[in-house]
Computed example of a mutant assay.
Amino acid sequence: MPDDFLVARNPEEGSSLPYVIRIPLGPDGIVLKAREPWPRTAKVYCHRAEAWPIDAEVLERVPTRVCTSRGAAIDLVLDRSRENRSQFVLARAKGRHVIFWQTPRTAKQARPNVRIPTARPRPGDPDTPDAGPPIPAELEILVDSYERYAWTFSRQQATTRRAPLSVGDYAVELDGRVVAAVERKSLQDLSSSLLNGRLRYALAELSGIRHGAVVVEDKYSRVFSLKHVRPAAVADAVAESQARYPTVPIIFCETRALAQEWTFRFLAAALHEARLDLGAAPHLDDLERAGPVPPREPTTAEVRAWAVAEGLPVSDRGRLRPEVWDAYRASRR
């Protein structure tokens, strides 16, 4: 389980990065030096530190709800109502590692190393700090040999190749291994496969790969106009499937053309992510681990209760005298 996220003053004199932060990732955490204590108006540049400084003055200590790594990024969610969501992105610039700390406000998209323009996917921009290795200029999409009336992707920058697929109807490979797949359904096929249980097996297979999805060539609202089945049963089955297999989204697209377009973009982005996961880009393993976290500072109430138990004279409220704090710290050594 994640522990606390720490922000402290950097004890190094003359440093251009005046703050030290500890990310609670892994058993020892990761320590970075940062220009700001939080990315409020712009991305914050960070640099890795060897270890947590013993004499650092802790400014903030916040419990963490989520701290996970994905490729070259760390997603961090703190247990507070404001300034709680952020992301650390590891990239390379001029041959060295650089780390940027960003929030939804300071980044238009919180998707490191993936560029999906409004037109068509194209190679990543090497001048962008978030850019990773480029995707192919023309994507090769595998089409299952048993797929009838298959999409041709004639309007996209893609080629297709027929091949027997063990999972999904459309897929992309990396080093001979399927890394992303999409199961295509019409609304009638979706409803029948949900009710007879076939789709559950397909979802289980798709959940076994890094990127899997089901795309439906129709609107979700059309579920409630089905004639030969009970619409509520189909809607419940969709919801139950998503709850059971949360990593495999079921996407409703209005038309066949939009479903094909979504599949093309999904497979392109998934292939890009898979290449990053295989080490083609900077990875979080390049960062040194922080070591043990310093103990939490006691609250005034805790020290007051200790002082009362020890028979020391203290007031019922307000600040405590420095000698009381010194006595408490001495008792803990």
Rank of each mutant, 00 (worst) to 15 (best):
residue 164 P to W: 05
residue 327 A to Q: 11
residue 246 P to Y: 06
residue 218 D to K: 12
residue 322 P to K: 12
residue 210 R to I: 11
residue 292 P to W: 02
residue 146 Y to N: 15
residue 148 R to L: 08
residue 13 E to R: 15
residue 112 P to V: 03
residue 63 P to L: 02
residue 129 P to Q: 00
residue 281 A to L: 02
residue 70 R to C: 08
residue 185 K to V: 07
residue 60 E to C: 02
residue 155 R to P: 12
residue 168 G to E: 00
residue 182 V to R: 06
residue 112 P to Q: 01
residue 220 Y to C: 08
residue 311 G to C: 03
residue 289 R to H: 08
residue 119 A to T: 15
residue 320 L to N: 07
residue 316 D to H: 11
residue 131 A to C: 11
residue 303 V to M: 09
residue 46 C to P: 05
residue 251 I to P: 03
residue 157 Q to W: 07
residue 192 S to G: 10
residue 96 R to D: 08
residue 151 W to N: 02
residue 254 E to A: 15
residue 333 R to M: 05
residue 174 L to C: 02
residue 142 L to N: 08
residue 108 K to R: 14
residue 94 K to P: 07
residue 21 I to N: 02
residue 326 D to R: 11
residue 267 L to N: 05
residue 303 V to D: 01
residue 31 V to G: 01
residue 104 P to L: 13
residue 4 D to A: 12
residue 330 A to L: 03
residue 52 W to H: 06
residue 93 A to T: 13
residue 71 G to V: 01
residue 274 A to W: 05
residue 267 L to G: 01
residue 8 A to V: 00
residue 249 P to T: 02
residue 98 V to Q: 13
residue 144 D to W: 08
residue 63 P to D: 04
residue 260 Q to D: 07
residue 106 T to C: 01
residue 107 A to Q: 13
residue 319 R to V: 06
residue 320 L to Y: 09
residue 74 I to D: 00
residue 231 P to C: 09
residue 27 P to H: 13
residue 177 R to I: 14
